[in-house]
Amino acid sequence: MNDFSELENELKKLRPAQPSPVLFERVEEAMGVSPARQPKRSPYNWLSLGLGLAAAAVLFLFATINMERTQERWEKIAQISPAPETSSVLPERRNGSGGSTSLNRFIPTGATQVVYNTRDEGLQFALGSEQPLRRLRYQTHQTWQWRNPTTGASLRVSYPSEEVVLIPVSGQ
C-alpha cells in the first residue's frame, strides 16, 4: 500500500463536483421540516389495528378467566338473590334503603367490543345520491359486564354483532 500513498494523497486533493443549491431545497421539500410534516399515511394502520385486536383479545380472555373463578361465588349469591336487579345507586340512596338492597345492586364495570373481521365491500351509490360511499362491514363480539360491589357477584352478557358503515368518498 505504501507504493500508492502518494497517489492516494493526490486523489484526496481532488474535490468532487458540488451539488446544486437546488438539491438541498428539493431534499428539504421531500423530507419536510419535521417528521410530522411527512406525507400523511393511510388512515388504516393495519399494524396498530392488529395490535389493538390482539390486546382486546387478551383482555377478553382475562375477563373470561376471571368470570370462571367467580362462578362458584356467583352461584352461591344467586341462591341468596335469585332475581338480581341492575338498579342504579342513586335511586337506592333516595329511597333510604341502600343497606337492604345493596345485595341486589349491580353497577356496570366494563364493555368490550372486539372487532374480529373487517371487510371492505367496495363503493356503492345510495339511492338518489351522486356521491359514492364506501361500504365497510365490521364483525364484532360485544361483552357487557356488571358487578355487585357488596357481594362481588358479576354478570356478563356477550353476543356477536355485525355493523355496516357507509363512508362518503370525497375527492374522486
Binding site: P16, A17, Q18
Partner: peptide
Amino acid sequence: NWKSCFSEVAPGLLL
C-alpha cells in the same frame, strides 16, 4: 440536523 449531515455527505454521494 439532517441538513448539515446532507451537506457533508452529498458531494461524495453524488460522485
